[in-house]
């Protein structure tokens, strides 16, 4: 996976299959969540926003960790592909974070009685969005893309401290946001019929991230390597 042309060819081959699998999973998850799953005993149908909100929130943390780890690999081993995966992840992670914040807000108004409160969970998730935006902005601001990747990796590693804060905020402090339902060591406090579509959606979202990061990375790779032989060969074949 280390060499750019090999990376480009390999990802080109697996992308259609990943897309098919992702579509199937998300379709099954949506059908299960919006049609099959029963309404909640307290929230009625409003709880169904969980099927978008929770997977996006999980992905917002997951993508950040991937970005920081790839950034660190890029810093230590100067691996081009890792640098590219790191910078390509930022806009996707920012979108997931935005989606989690917006869906949470839409749910919060009828359930809590407020669009937004400054509790520890919501505030730290908002800081995560700003971290992503910082990474995107910093990368765009530096002309030389290899220098930019290094600067971005350091910023991403500094922000890594926010990830456990977001996850544990609901346990460390009093928050309006409820505690974890699924990601705790105890048994999940959600009925099986509601849990299965949620897990389908979670895996579907993971694949969606994988697909979009690969597409973005391929574009970034071609742009960076535009002067190299393998890219010109690729263009001649067209």
């Amino acid at each position: 996976m280390g060499s750019p042309p090999h990376f480009y060819r390999f990802t080109g081959k697996i992308l259609p299959w990943l897309s098919l699998l992702c579509t199937l999973l998300i379709a099954a998850g949506l059908w299960g969540g919006l049609v099959e799953a029963p309404a909640d005993y307290q929230q009625g149908d409003s709880f169904r926003i969980i099927y978008v909100h929770v997977p996006s929130a999980w992905m917002s943390l997951f993508v950040y960790v991937v970005m920081a780890v790839c950034g660190a690999i890029g810093l230590i081993w100067h691996m081009k592909n890792a640098e590219i995966i790191a910078v390509s992840s930022a806009p996707i992670g920012a979108s997931f974070t935005f989606l989690a914040l917006v869906t949470g807000s839409l749910w919060g108004k009828p359930m809590w009685g407020s669009w937004w409160v400054w509790d520890a969970r919501l505030t730290s998730e908002l800081i995560l969005l700003f971290l992503y935006l910082g990474v995107i902005g910093l990368y765009a601001a530096i002309e030389d893309k290899r220098t930019a990747s290094r600067a971005v990796a350091i910023l991403a590693l500094v922000g890594l401290v926010n990830i456990p804060i977001i996850h544990y905020s609901v346990e460390w402090w009093n928050t309006l946001h409820q505690g974890p339902t699924v990601t705790k060591f105890d048994k999940p406090s959600i009925h099986v019929s509601m849990l299965i579509p949620l897990l389908l959606m979670a895996v579907g979202f993971k694949l969606f991230y994988l697909i979009s990061v690969l597409i973005r990375a391929r574009g970034e790779l071609i742009e960076r390597e535009s002067n190299s032989n393998w890219v010109s060969e690729l263009l001649e074949k067209r």
Partner: peptide
């Protein structure tokens, strides 16, 4: 001046709650 409901982390169908 303001009352917000705090939701807990339990999700279940009404029959199960009953």
């Amino acid at each position: 001046e303001e009352v917000l409901a705090k939701h807990d982390e339990n999700y279940m169908p009404p029959e199960v709650a009953d």
